[in-house]
Design a protein around this nucleic acid. Structure first.
Length: 304
DNA sequence: ATCCCGTCTG
DNA sequence: CAGACGGGAT
């Protein structure tokens, strides 16, 4: 536990000022006004790789369409994936996970959401972060969340070494007992509006300036985040286009689908049937797409 | 052109 | 543990 030693002596003050800072003013996202675990799970899954400002409209529309976990469980998967694509939420697998998770709640938990991080973790698409987020925001029963916001804050403020174990230990040490709801909201809000990649310490009135190692040294280095390969022209972009095209049709022959995915599609060319079949077989393995044979012709559609 | 960033699969 | 996974904002 050498990591905890890097925390200031007056941990009580550190905790109190952050909670005070959060409660006095924070972004008013609609999911911060509910304790419905289903609604919170939807917001967390949407937020996993999508900016919060873009999530807001999609979240409202999603809950309007499937207001309860039972409604979502009863939906067809294709409808959920179509919704995801319509709202440009990316990562279509997450729509599938959410749908599966809803069915798990119905089938394995009698329609009642699990309340502990450990039990939540068994739901599809729910990893350590999301399990603690839902347990915290719905039930105030979570452990300290560790996402990249939290890592950046701890790394800068308390000089915590860039290792997952150190971040987890320090985050746990710092969280006030029985206050996971407000605490996890507050520390992620700090990372989101003050301790961003480009810090806004004074502008955001960061309550930790008097303790902050980075603020005192001027070294605002943050833990490395791996950079992504280019998106334009990527396989991910083509997967997204396949879903986007298929959601508009019941069923489409390969040579009709192909040109709508890429303009340079030609059946026997470099980007032709062989290329498209390979792409579709991955989407099929992911459970997002189905292919069929009719009179020797291959067709594709969203999996229901 | 670069940023955003948690979970699953192999 | 490494690599795959969307697409808008800036």
């Amino acid at each position: 536990m050498t990591e905890a030693a890097s925390l200031p002596e007056d941990t009580g003050d550190v905790r109190a000022v952050l909670i005070e800072w959060y409660e006095s003013d924070h972004r008013d996202f609609p999911w911060r006004r509910t304790t419905d675990p289903y609604a919170i799970l939807v917001s967390e899954v949407m937020s996993q790789q999508t900016q919060l400002e873009r999530v807001e409209k999609a979240w409202t529309a999603f809950l309007d369409r499937w207001p309860t976990v039972a409604d979502l469980a009863a939906a067809e998967r294709g409808a959920v994936v179509s919704f995801w694509s319509d709202h440009r939420l990316g990562y279509n697998n997450r729509a599938k996970y959410l749908h599966t998770a809803a069915q798990q709640v119905l089938d394995e938990h009698d329609g009642e959401f699990p309340t502990s991080p450990t039990a939540l973790r068994s739901l599809q698409g729910v990893g350590p972060y999301t399990a603690n987020a839902v347990a915290s925001f719905a039930f105030n029963e979570g452990n300290a969340v560790v996402d990249t916001n939290v890592k950046r804050v701890l790394y800068r403020a308390f000089d915590v070494p860039d290792s997952d174990a150190a971040f987890e230990d320090t985050a746990a040490e710092l969280m006030p007992e029985g206050a996971s709801r407000v605490w996890n909201n507050a520390i992620m809000e700090l990372g989101g509006v003050a301790c961003q990649k480009t810090p806004r310490c004074d502008a955001a009135g960061c309550p930790w300036r008097e303790w902050c190692h980075a603020y005192q040294t001027g070294d605002f280095t943050a833990p490395d985040v791996p950079t992504q390969p280019e998106f334009e022209g990527s396989r991910r972009q083509m997967r997204g286009r396949v879903i986007s095209v298929l959601k508009e049709y019941d069923e489409l022959p390969l040579d009709t689908l192909g040109p709508r995915v890429r303009v340079d599609y030609s059946p026997d060319g470099e980007y032709g049937r062989a290329w498209l079949r390979e792409l579709l077989s991955d989407l099929e393995a992911d459970g997002l797409v189905e292919t069929d044979e009719h009179d020797g012709e291959t067709t594709a559609q969203l999996r229901q």
